[in-house]
Structure formats: C-alpha cells, structure tokens
Design a protein around this nucleic acid. Structure first.
Lengths: 211, 211
DNA sequence: GGGCTTGTTATACGGTTGTATAACAACTGG
DNA sequence: CCAGTTGTTATACAACCGTATAACAAGCCC
C-alpha cells in the first residue's frame, strides 16, 4: 500500500501569498483569532501547512499582511463610494454613511474580523502603525467632505465634526453588526443618516427612500 | 535536598473565585486573549494552576464569570454616575457622557479587555446573551433619561436618539482609547458632549469648564 | 492534640501549536 | 528527454495548552 503523496501545482509566490491572505481573513471572520493557526489557514487555502513559511517569514508576518490588506480594502472601498458624487459633499457623505451601515460592511463577520485583529494591534507596533494610518486616512477623507459644506470651512471645526461623525458611524456599525436582530432592517442606516444630519446641520434623509 | 512544597493558606471558595476573576480580567486587559491560559491567570492570582479547576468547572466557566463581572461592573458604574443627578436628565446625560470618555473608562486597557471578550461572545451563546442583556440595559437607561427631556417624550423618538447617542459614545470611546495620542487631553470628552448636544437639541457644555 | 476533611500543590498526559528539516515532484531550460 | 531549480508535501520536534490525578498539609472539630 504505497502512501500516495498529494498532487499539486506550482504557483507564483504572489498568487500563493494572496491566497493565504484571503484564507487568513476568512478564518478570522468566521472563527475568530483562536482559530488562526497555520494548519487551519493552510487547509483553508488548500495547501499544506509547511508552505506558509515558504512564502512568509513567520505566521506573524502573514497576519500583518492580512491586516494590512483588510485595512487597505476598507479605505479603498470608502474612497470609491464617496467618489461617485464629485462636487456634491452632501451626497458623498450620505453615500459613505449608508454603505458603512449596510451589509456587506455592517455584518457580524466583519465585526469579528475587525475585533480579532484589534487585540493584536495593541501589542504589535507594526500593526498599530497600520491601524492608525488607516484610521486617520478615513477620517481625513470625511473631514475633506465636511469642509466643502457651506459654513464648515474652518479646519478646526471640520476636524471636530469629522471625529464626531466617524464616532457615530463606528458606534452604530458596531451595535448593528453585533446585535443584528435588535434592529429592524434598515433602521441602523436611517438612524445613522439622521444622526449625521443633526451633527452637520444638513438633511441626508431627503432622497433616502428613492435610493 | 528536600524539594520544599510551596506554603499556602486555605481560603473560602468565594474569595478564590473573586481573585481568579480579577486575575483573568487583568490578564485580558494587559496581554489580550492570547495570554488567557490557566497557568498565566493562576500565576497572576498567586495560586497554582490546578486550583482553577477546583473552583471553576472549566477554564471556559471562569472566562464566562469574568465577562459577566466586567459587564456588571460597567453597567453598575454607569447607573451610579447618572444617579447623582436625580430629576435632572440633562446633567445626568452629561455626567454619563463625560465618565464614558475619560479615564479610567476610556483607556487602552479597557478597549483591549472589551475587544478580547468580543471574539468569544460571537461563538459562545451564553456570553452572547450576557452581552446583549448588558447592552440593552445600558441603552434603556440612556433612553429613560432622554425621555425625561422636554419634547422627547415619544418612546419611538427617544429610542432612536438613545441608539444614536450610544453609538457616538461607543465610537468615540473606541477611537479615544485606541489612539490616545491622536487627541488633545479632554478633546474626546468635549467632542462627545458637543455631539450629544447636537443630537438631543440641548447644551451639555454649559457648565463644562467648572466641573 | 490527633484524626478528618478538603483546599492546595505538583506532576502527568494527550493534543495542538509554530517552526525546522528532509524527501519529493513539477516545471524550466537546454 | 534529461538535469537542475525550487515550490511543495510530509514529518519531526520542543514548547505549551487544558485537563486529570495523586500526594500533601492547613485548619477545624471533638
């Protein structure tokens, strides 16, 4: 009985790295940081466990790359959403709030993924820098849109408002994603639009039903 | 060379349980969920590792008890803060916002502690129920105070406002605690008071400097 | 003060972890 | 079609995990 070795295909390193990053993010989202072992991630990526350390210097290295990819994707998505409304800061902000408080952004798996990395951020300086840079980038985009609103040109005022808006978006995202069945469908999104409207003194709910 | 066994004192079970819960919370806050091993927690509590399973049925049981203790403490603290302003909903809300956005509530260790448990909440139904109950209790307290404000008596309106206020408080707590050096001292607290003022149409910053 | 209860320490055990290494085979270039 | 490179699998290893168990001793009761 010859014990057959598993057949395989050779792939370029970049492809394997991408697959491993995707697998790591999926495992984090579905099963949390406790399941982030090299064997589980490798199985998810469809390769053997030892291969991870052929494409990444260590497990920690893979996790950092996965975290960076997640943060990149989030800010890029946000940028694209707001980009659809050039020269219209009000609609850009409304689109940004709505996309943040709807699936697939506001979902239990996303919260789990984000929370799972948050622990590691606290103890790894590299990840802390990645996290801070992504947060500030997001907030700066928000502030830039707010500054385009009439009467909100003062950067200090716009900064405060951006922090507050970012806070309410994050907080609602967290509540809605953690306790999905405590809210009616679309309720969190409506509350978010209403709250940001109050903060900025505008009306983001005007064309809401039509979207 | 007789290998001396470590001397010890016998303690009532309740005392040992409390010590172990305190040790577990400290380890979670300082080193994250990755450090939550029976050996680390026991060492932190000053006892041998095996003793944990003499006072708790399993490690999971201890973690659940620690989580419940943390949530209880948080809601109890909040309740006491607001209680100092009976019949004055505006000041009660202001005190609640301020205490949430200041040390020792808004601190990196608290965020880490909370985020560490959040992962476990997603996969343990018992912890999920504890979490949901605590969240709703907190939000109901907030809603009760809001409903006492003039013009905010409608429960549906007050509910929406409570969700939004809770969101902005949570979001700012998260931002301020995660990136403490991105904000000036007291800045997050001021922004929080200002934001909740906008949401509720009142002025919580009136007597701020005097406090 | 001498047994007795039981809280406590210490050790053992199977399983899992990240990492290191050796054997193998898929593709490349000629 | 064959040698060489190297991506890949498989296995080994020390450390650590949660749990189980045995030996011990601190404090209580009579």
């Amino acid at each position: 009985m010859g014990e057959a070795r598993r057949p395989y295909r050779r792939e370029p390193s970049e492809r394997r790295r991408d697959d491993l990053i995707a697998a790591a993010l999926a495992v984090m989202a579905e099963a949390g940081p406790g399941a982030m072992t090299v064997r589980t991630i490798a199985e998810r990526a469809g390769i053997s466990a030892g291969l991870i350390r052929h494409h990444f210097r260590s497990k920690e290295d893979l996790i950092r790359a996965a975290f960076a990819a997640m943060m990149d994707r989030m800010t890029e998505t946000t940028r694209q959403v707001a980009e659809h409304h050039p020269g219209n800061p009000q609609q850009a902000i409304a689109a940004l709030v709505s996309s943040s408080l709807r699936p697939p952004v506001m979902e239990p798996e996303r919260i789990g993924q984000w929370a799972g990395f948050l622990n590691l951020v606290r103890q790894d300086p590299v990840m802390r820098d990645l996290h801070e840079a992504a947060y500030l980038k997001y907030r700066d985009m928000l502030q830039a849109h707010i500054q385009q609103l009439p009467g909100k040109e003062d950067p200090r005022l716009a900064r405060h408002l951006a922090i507050a808006c970012n806070g309410v978006i994050d907080g609602l995202w967290l509540e809605g994603g953690t306790l999905p069945h405590s809210f009616a469908p679309g309720e969190v999104e409506r509350i978010g639009l209403s709250a940001v409207s109050s903060l900025l003194g505008i009306d983001l709910l005007a064309g809401f039903e039509r979207e």
